[in-house]
Nucleic acid binder design. Structure first.
Lengths: 136, 136
DNA sequence: ATGGATGCAAAGCCTTTGCAAGCTT
DNA sequence: AAGCTTGCAAAGGCTTTGCATCCAT
């Protein structure tokens, strides 16, 4: 356990949002100027490998890291301000577990994401009405 | 409507799996040797823009395109062979719609994905037991 | 003729990796 | 001392874009 690692871990687990490597890099950088980008990247990967976080991609090419709690949750993703709101997914987990069994899959994890626009963005009018509704 | 576009569209909608740009490129290439990579890419983007498909990222850095049907579905993603099995998500959609409303979000689309190992991969023993279970 | 579509090649960008140097234990 | 961890820099690999050319209307 090096001081860099400790700083990265502490910073990551104090976040209340999903950070990208860049974001976390900037954060730890503001505390320890000498820390390297790859160190942040590698430690984030490490955290995932040991099961404390999970990579999430929302399609903008940037990988973000979602700290895993023991509480199953899904994500409401605002297409306007990119804000992510988590919601309890207890109800859905049951359905998914059942589905996995029916298809002879083991369930090692899941992702539930709803894309849309939050109230603020709708109020600000930053809603691209050309957005089409989609079901996946 | 150019012949290239027609070929790309036709090929894409005939697929029964999620293709990446490369995959579709190879497919149309086997029919029309002169077609360009960017043309495939741009047309796939176009299909998404008009709401007939959706980009999906499973975290391997490759963007795949999921043809949208009017039937809401989720994906069972095998971590072993990368196979994707779709399942009906009717039950879940209701819960998600409700959740969106509760959080003052408009629902413009969703993604439901379960990661695990399919029966075949478990039989073949290609299951990395170090995989940790995760909830998102 | 004319604006959009295509191909090729080059940029972009984020993610990974190679390596020598520096810590931990 | 021995092995893992860091930093820096370079390499990768997929996604985008610039542009001149071509084609559909």
């Amino acid at each position: 356990m090096t001081p860099q690692r400790e700083l990265i871990f502490r910073s990551f687990f104090e976040m209340d949002k999903h950070v990208s490597v860049d974001e976390l890099y900037e954060i730890v950088r503001s505390i320890d100027r000498s820390i390297g980008y790859s160190t942040v990247w590698r430690n984030l990967k490490l955290i995932c490998r040991v099961g404390l976080a999970q990579e999430v991609s929302i399609g903008d090419g940037i990988t973000r890291y979602d700290r895993l709690t023991r509480i199953p949750h899904g994500h409401l993703f605002c297409l306007g301000c990119k804000k992510v709101v988590e919601f309890n997914a207890d109800q859905i987990v049951g359905v998914l577990a059942q589905t996995a069994i029916e298809n002879d899959f083991t369930n090692k994890g899941f992702k539930v994401e709803v894309q849309g626009f939050c109230g603020e963005c709708r109020a600000k009018g930053s809603v691209d009405s050309s957005e089409t509704e989609s079901v996946s």
